[in-house]
Design a protein around this nucleic acid. Sequence first.
DNA 1: CTGAGAAATTGCCAAATGACAAGAAAGCTA
DNA 2: TAGCTTTCTTGTCATTTGGCAATTTCTCAG
Lengths: 187, 187
Amino acid sequence: MIRLANYIRSLIDINDADLRVILSNFSKKKLKKGTFILKHGQVASSYYFIASGAIRIFSGDEPKDKTLWIAFENEFIAELPSIKFLTPSSFSFQAIEETTLITIESGKMDRLYEEFPQFQAFGRQIWEKAFLKVVDNVTLLQTENATERYKKAVLKTDYIQRVSLKYLSSYLGITQTSLSRLRKKIK
Amino acid sequence: MIRLANYIRSLIDINDADLRVILSNFSKKKLKKGTFILKHGQVASSYYFIASGAIRIFSGDEPKDKTLWIAFENEFIAELPSIKFLTPSSFSFQAIEETTLITIESGKMDRLYEEFPQFQAFGRQIWEKAFLKVVDNVTLLQTENATERYKKAVLKTDYIQRVSLKYLSSYLGITQTSLSRLRKKIK
DNA sequence: CTGAGAAATTGCCAAATGACAAGAAAGCTA
DNA sequence: TAGCTTTCTTGTCATTTGGCAATTTCTCAG
């Protein structure tokens, strides 16, 4: 919970009392490796903060799934379009390690927005961050070759090295074989 | 203006009178080919609807720029993060044909949201559309080879064929040379 | 600690894409 | 329309990436 508190504080100004109330609306969940927290086609109803572990967001079904994003500790994630517009999710969310999540239902989130208007800035920033990350990704995929994409991904987060090649490769837009080879060449 | 009216109507329910007031806040602009409506580093302050023509959104500077998106008639575009958070724009917007824009300043847009709450749904959908488009793009870049990406881009909009290879190639994440060749092969 | 299943590596070869430069075609302006 | 500029195409060759299958390594439940 402290991690979440710090995360919120890093994005908005808020006093201790308000923050405490906000946090009381969240609940903790432990997930085993492999657990799905959302499957594509379902309507998403929660926001997730990763206290520890890693979640992969992907489209399609294994083994031909495509990893859109991999989130690690101290990251706030959600299937925003599905939550906001009650449409079926395009993506599945899966824990790829033992993971501790701190979650909140979207209804509660909305009530917090009403009760604490300054908290709305938090919601907006989640959107913005998500948007910018995806845009960055497009640029990377358009611009760099596989080797550079891998290097930059590692630079951004060491965590990325915890991810199996199977998942990482589709995130980088290459095959597992190629990723294995280029990683070897880099060393 | 009729085009914009239809566009708004396609996204939200709104009566004639309200729509008329809303439209009166927009203004028309004609742009010659090559004109910039926003350069990266500037803070964006307007939303744009393309009545005719085409706008390309790109990062970096020519000739090494990367085209993130190409928008055509009946598309609503904006540098949303820059508008919302007053941060410098990461992208430049440039007319790549003679273009007629219908624009509105963000301040006026905000006032419309207050005056016509149902219009907020319009704003939200712009965000969502932008987000989904970018996500689609990631998936495409991750999943398909250059030939497929080109085919799918053409399938989505015939308009794409109006775009010079120079711009189109970086949008597809390949070189102009390769695009020229693969286009020949397809015919 | 062990053995089955999953994941990663490697070899071999084919296909796709890139780099660079030259020439052809198309578009624009006076 | 002529002439200039930009864009497009093509040739050659190098490099990157993919496909497939065999083998090795790793992981984890029992």
